[in-house]
Simulated assay, not measured.
Amino acid sequence: MQVEVNLFTVNKRFPLTISRGTTAKTTNVWVKILHDDIEGWGEASPFGVGNYGQSTETIKDYLQQLAPLLQPFSPLQRQEIEQLFVKNQVPSGVRAALDIAMHDWLGKRVGLPLWQIWGLDRQAIVPTSVTIGIDTPERAKIRTRDWLELTDVRLLKVKLGSPHGIEADKEMLLAVQQEATAQECFVDANGGWSLADAIAMCNWLAELGIKYVEQPLVRGQEEDLIKLKAQSPLPIFVDESCFNSTDIPRLANYVDGINIKLMKSGGLTEALRMVHTAKACGLQVMFGCYSDSTLSNTAAAQLAPLADYLDLDSHLNLSDDPFTGALLQEGRVLPNDLPGLGVKYSASAT
């Protein structure tokens, strides 16, 4: 198969601030594979967790190095290609782009959307949350109003872990709840709390009716999660602490759920493994995203019927998304009936 690599930049309508910094735009990687006159598409977006990251340039360079190695293969040889990835220590974002593209190719080959190939029930997809980044209380209220005007919002994920401490977190969350009286709220600290602050916040958040807390402690502090779980009335989800299926068994006694992102997992193949591993360990499953366009989020939406929670909103915050695919209907990101991912290029993106 032939591999083509292109870069494209997407800009956020509203910059997103989390405990680790602010993002206003990213340059993502669009991968096309061609085999038997069928073209499959995939995407990789750069991301960072603590001192670990995968940049656009790193992803692009790996893809260009892999292209000649992949030429003898068919997209149907995913197991053999996965072994090639392991042998060459290919980063997860690179694997994700190629794996998504191979799945898209397969769906187009057989003329079916992926969710249908897997026998999934599209009507089982739950509403997605949309994200409110760290900000002042007043600006957080404005951002909440923006989301309410832009989309049919049912759920809000509020980013906490402010560098100004948990009192600032409390003021901001209360401001969001005052503005969004009909929406349920989740909280994601992105590892921005100490153990003591996390215990205090989980108990305070429970009194406000918050559904769960995501990544309260920094990646690397997983052993303290068992102490937090013992004192938290809220379910605990992890994101930065869980990249792939091998991470799940060691976390199973510490948390209540995991956040699966295609860029961390390495694509749909591993994401499906993670779902089954998590369920076998008694954990709930969420699908999330980085600065992904409609291309990646539509790929994740193909597996969305298996998720307990969804946070696939990054494409909704783009002013110039070059793709169309999954649609937001009644607060749910629903894949369409087109073959493969069902994604098309929209040259008129603004």
Rank of each mutant, 00 (worst) to 15 (best):
M1K: 08
N6P: 04
F8G: 10
F8Y: 15
P15I: 04
V29N: 07
K32F: 00
I33T: 01
D36Q: 13
E39F: 02
G40L: 13
S45V: 12
F47L: 03
Q54D: 06
Q54Y: 12
S55V: 08
E57Q: 13
D61A: 15
D61P: 04
D61L: 11
Y62R: 13
Y62H: 13
L66N: 08
P72A: 08
S74D: 12
P75V: 04
L76V: 13
E80P: 02
E80M: 10
Q83H: 05
L84H: 14
F85R: 12
K87C: 03
P91T: 07
S92W: 12
D99F: 06
I100Q: 09
A101Q: 14
H103A: 09
D104T: 14
W105S: 13
K108D: 05
R109T: 14
G111A: 10
L112I: 05
L112V: 08
Q116R: 15
W118L: 13
W118F: 13
G119W: 01
V130E: 05
I134W: 04
K141E: 08
R145K: 11
D146Y: 14
D146F: 12
W147G: 01
W147L: 07
L150D: 08
V153C: 05
V158S: 07
V158M: 04
A168R: 14
A168I: 11
K170S: 03
Q178K: 11
E179C: 07
A180E: 12
T181I: 09
Q183H: 03
C185F: 09
F186M: 15
F186E: 14
V187R: 04
V187I: 02
S194R: 11
A196P: 07
I199W: 03
A200Y: 14
E207K: 15
E207F: 10
E207T: 15
L217C: 04
V218M: 10
G220K: 13
E222R: 12
D224T: 08
L225W: 11
I226K: 10
K227H: 10
V238G: 00
D239C: 00
T246I: 01
N253M: 02
Y254R: 11
V255G: 00
I258V: 12
G267P: 03
G267N: 10
M274W: 00
T277F: 01
A278N: 09
L283R: 14
Q284F: 05
Y290I: 02
Y290N: 09
D292N: 05
S293V: 05
S296E: 00
T298K: 01
A299G: 13
Q302L: 04
A304S: 15
P305S: 06
Y309M: 01
L310H: 09
L312I: 01
D313S: 05
L316V: 05
P335C: 05
P335R: 11
G340E: 09
G342V: 04
A347G: 13
T350W: 02
